[in-house]
Design a protein around this nucleic acid. Structure first.
Length: 425
RNA sequence: GGCAGGUUGCCCGAGCGGCCAAUGGGAGCGGACUGUAAAUCCGUCGGCUUUGCCUUCGAAGGUUCGAAUCCUUCACCUGCCA
């Protein structure tokens, strides 16, 4: 595997280096040989999300450039929980942490290559943390951490008012110990992570310097926020999950397709492997013809392919085209329509048995597009209810046999984007 | 431990015996304008068998024809004094 000498410049151009240790030293290390680097994921949920994806993609960039990844799953750190501003975490049961650790491991695996000269390695920090005695921990690790410095960290300072447990306060020692362990046992010289990890990561760099005298490297990627500075997924009720069970690939694709114009250049840079030329061309196209949303389309296609595969992405693209661009749904052939509606997050199988159709409002509830009948009636009254892409004004209207497309489907829609498929039997 | 204040819908926050499903802001949702974008404007925003009914204002009791509003107890939070 040959080393890509442009790696660091590329990372810089993409805006991936929010903070870093000495860049010149890192550049030298990258030039000298395949650098072993690590990135860690704590099992704080059953699935990884958009924020983690950024670390994964960045790790892939380094591997493609010839360096050697170590992916750490936090079987140990996940039992402790790193401090965050929103307050003390609730400790998860051991079994839950174990299960989530396994899920995280399986989720990350497909992204990296575990073959070749710079094959990736999976590690679990529980393996070297579980058997450390409290005495050893305090003597070997704790001794290197001045409490006054730990107290000065932003996260800790912000939490002093409301309170922070000793457990979370100690988190940084565990993560630092991981870096020290990987450095000693595997020759790992670089750690990357999200910008919120900067404190924990430099803790490790510092620990290694004190314990071994070695200078190791680190960098963190920026926090990705919406154009107005708020977090993605913060208000829409849930993060952007990578697990198809927790967020359908269709919704995932739609998310990227709907990204604000302003964010497209940044997201293309950090989340896709498109080259600088390709991205700049997309930006030019966008500046000229923004209504084409070429950037969003490229983004949605690339990221969805990366996470859910090319086949799935093709299906979703066809589905989106059928529903959004088709206009007259009768014109859409049955195969495309069926495929489209099976990809939509809301579906319902209606057993008619000769009985009369439910009302439009009832169907909106049955498919799950509306939370309650009141909400459904309200939606229709507001002009946000559609049957087969035609607005319905009366919530108590009932579809007729003629409305069933290809003898099988009713397409319900709420607002501009929420589609639901009703399969009539 | 003592004194004072607080706990309201997704969040913040009014209300302080009937006119309260509860002012206002934010988020959300829908519409208009567009480009499945942003901004803006308008509407909506507990549930239902929907011109009416039911369940909500920390919890449980009580006073009253009637309580988010008054009283009692409990829980939690905040400030002042120990």
């Amino acid at each position: 595997m040959s080393l890509d000498p442009t790696l660091l410049d590329d990372l810089e151009w993409r805006g991936l280096l929010a903070h870093s240790t000495d860049l010149d030293a890192m550049r030298e290390a990258f030039a000298a040989g395949s650098v072993r680097y690590y990135v860690g994921f704590d099992p704080t949920a059953p699935s990884l999300h958009m924020g983690n994806l950024l670390q994964i993609v960045t790790a892939v960039r380094l591997q493609r450039a010839g360096h050697t990844p170590y992916v750490l799953v936090g079987g140990a750190t996940g039992m402790i929980g790193d401090p965050r501003d929103s307050g003390e975490r609730t400790l998860n049961p051991t079994e839950t942490v174990a299960e989530w650790t396994e899920r995280v491991r399986r989720q990350v695996e497909p992204f990296l290559s575990f073959e070749g000269e710079n094959a990736a390695t999976m590690v679990n920090n529980l393996d070297w943390t579980a058997q450390v005695s409290a005495i050893d921990f305090l003597r070997d690790i704790g001794k290197h951490f001045p409490v006054n410095r730990m107290l000065a960290r932003d996260v800790v300072r912000n939490r002093l008012e409301d309170g922070i447990s000793y457990t979370e306060f100690s988190y940084v020692l565990l993560q630092s110990m991981d870096y020290l362990h990987l450095h000693r046992e595997h020759g790992v010289d670089l750690q990357l992570g999200g910008s919120d990890q900067w404190g924990n990561i430099t803790g490790g760099v510092e620990l290694i310097r004190r314990a071994t005298g070695d200078r190791v490297h680190a960098f963190v990627t920026p926090l990705i926020t919406k154009a107005d500075g708020t977090k993605y997924g913060k208000t829409e009720g849930g993060a952007l999950w990578l697990d198809p069970e927790m967020m359908s690939p269709y919704s995932f694709f739609q998310f990227w397709l709907n990204v604000e114009d302003e964010k497209v250049p940044e997201l293309l840079r950090v989340f896709t492997f498109l080259s600088r030329e390709e991205i700049e061309e997309l930006e030019a196209t966008h500046a000229e013809k923004p209504f084409l949303r070429a950037g969003q389309k490229a983004l949605a296609e690339h990221v969805t392919t990366l996470v859910h595969g090319a086949e799935e992405t093709e299906r979703i693209k066809a589905a989106s085209a059928a529903l959004f661009e088709g206009g007259e749904l009768r014109a859409v052939d049955e195969r495309t329509l069926s495929a489209a509606l099976r990809n939509v997050p809301f579906t319902y199988e209606l057993e008619l048995n000769g009985a009369e159709f439910p009302t439009v409002a009832e169907l909106l509830v049955l498919t799950g597009v509306c939370e309650s009948k009141s909400a459904a009636i309200r939606a229709v009254k507001e002009g946000g209810g559609y049957l087969n892409n035609v607005r319905v004004s009366d919530p108590s209207a009932r579809p007729s046999v003629d409305d069933v497309l290809h003898g099988k489907w009713l397409v319900l829609r709420r607002g501009k984007k929420k589609f639901a498929g009703v399969e009539v039997r």
